[in-house]
Design a protein around this nucleic acid. Structure first.
Length: 419
RNA sequence: GGGGGAGUGUCCCGAGCGGCAAAGGGGGCGGACUGUAAAUCCGCUGGCUAUGCCUUCGUAGGUUCGAGUCCUACCUCCCCCA
């Protein structure tokens, strides 16, 4: 391992963000000379970023922390094309409206991680639709297309994967890497960007950009990728029963987000603390070293620190306190996710248990609920449901005026009568 | 342009003599064991106003008491020949 001299690369190396660097010595030297402007691109394929994107976001944060300038590149243009990397099949084309609305909803997240502004190390957000939408095909082919060798493009993993598997790769998607390379060259020219970062699956795309930048702009550009994030048991990060672990609060509650991190596997705790929190390395090491049940303390710290970054310190503390009351005291915590039900309905005809669990969103259908009852997975006010025809009535309200529904040991929702 | 093959339970992969709500995996969920972990074991994994009804096997028709299974056309993809 190389001994880095710049605080930037030192920090990245210590915390585990480095998988590959295009020219480590030169980049290290450049970082010592003054603020580097670096960027990461984010596609707008969904209405929120999820845990899988946090590596990228954190890299930009660390970059800024070590005195450099981060650029968040929104892929308003490239999302229209679709990145074939790591996908078996072509993604369905998204309409301009969907992309625009996704982008609007994604943007807010970054303000929690980066400080934006006009200063030399302030973060900036740009949208590649600005220059991609207005490209003229023939001039583009002549100026940039000539720098790309199809022979070489065919050797890139994103392309090879499809070809090897006899999966179709449309010409549209084939262009993605060219556009991403063009982004880099464009940003180098107009904004003095020197470095593109990304996940290790982006290495090929980044290298293309470096080459292109040298040819069309004569710029010496660099690339840095982070390891692909998986859990110790090999699962991809960010998937749970309910779907992706979204960063937007309206897509996933603070409580559920906190719970996601609280349930981290033992082997991942240290790594995640270094990657996803601002805690000093010594503290990360101390927490990581805890053994047996004690490591649960480390998981709580991890959960609260990450939640604080994404949702704010207050919300994180609240989630931790709610968890403490729910799991450690077995008490009813008022800040669990709450679903409102009609008070008159509850008082008069009552609400069937199955329906109640569906309403609470804990199960997908009555049939699903029925199965869970059979497996002993549903609880009302901590009592296992045994009769699927049971009716919830006003009498089932706890002194706090709610009914606590649980799926398994970990997922809880409060029903609150209103009206 | 000619010839051959494929598309299965809306998470994925994948069996499927004309009686099929459809084998088996993986993943996921629940239970047991634990520490709200991992590993392991067990159960579940179309919908409903439910001893029945409805919707599912690329799309649309047809044959049949009955079709994922047979026929026709179409769509998409792969392979071989030109």
């Amino acid at each position: 391992m190389i001994e880095y001299r710049s605080s930037f690369l030192k920090l990245f190396a210590e915390r585990g963000y480095i998988a590959q660097i295009s020219d480590p010595e030169a980049l290290d030297k450049l970082a010592l000379e003054g603020p580097i402007t670096a960027y990461i691109g984010f596609d707008c394929t969904g209405p929120s970023l999820h845990v899988g994107h946090m590596m990228g976001i954190m890299m930009l944060r660390r970059l800024q922390q070590s005195g450099h300038k981060p650029i968040v590149l929104m892929g308003g243009g490239t999302t229209k094309v679709g990145d074939p990397s790591g996908k078996d099949e072509a993604r369905q084309l998204l309409t301009d409206e969907v992309i625009a609305s996704n982008m609007a909803s994604i943007k807010q997240i970054f303000t929690n991680f980066l400080s934006f502004g006009d200063g030399p190390t302030d973060a900036v957000m740009v949208n590649n639709a600005e220059w991609l939408d207005t490209l003229h095909y023939i001039p583009f082919l002549r100026d940039y297309g000539r720098h790309f060798s199809v022979n070489r493009m065919l050797t890139f993993d994103s392309v090879k994967l499809r070809l090897d598997r006899d999966q179709p790769l449309s010409f549209l998607e084939f262009n993605y890497m060219i556009l991403q390379a063009y982004d880099f060259a464009e940003l180098a020219k107009t904004r003095g960007v020197r470095l593109q970062m990304g996940g290790s699956d982006q290495w090929g795309n980044i290298v293309n950009g470096i080459d292109l930048g040298r040819r069309v702009a004569g710029a010496e550009l660099y690339g840095l990728t982070c390891p692909l994030l998986t859990t110790a048991s090999g699962a991809k990060m960010g998937k749970t029963a309910a779907g992706a672990v979204w960063l937007n609060g309206d897509m996933l509650s603070t409580w559920d987000f906190w719970q996601y991190w609280r349930n981290t596997e033992d082997e991942d705790v240290g790594r995640f603390l270094r990657l996803f929190t601002d805690l000093p390395l010594e503290e990360c090491a101390r927490l990581e070293a805890l053994e047996g049940a004690d490591i649960n303390e480390a998981k709580k710290v991890l959960a609260t620190e990450v939640t604080a970054l994404v949702h704010g310190r207050d919300a994180a503390n609240e989630a931790q306190e709610t968890a403490r009351r729910t799991f450690e005291e077995g008490a009813l915590a008022e800040n669990l996710p709450t679903v409102e039900v009609s008070a008159p309905e509850l008082a008069e005809q009552g609400i069937g248990v199955l329906h109640a669990f569906v309403t609470a969103g804990l199960v997908g259908s009555n049939g699903d609920a029925r199965r869970q009852v059979k497996g002993g997975g549903l609880k009302v006010n901590d009592a296992t449901v045994t009769d699927e025809r049971a009716i919830l009535r006003t009498g089932d309200l706890t002194p706090e005026g709610v009914i606590k529904l649980s799926l398994g040991k970990k997922r809880h929702v409060l029903l609150k009568p209103v009206g």
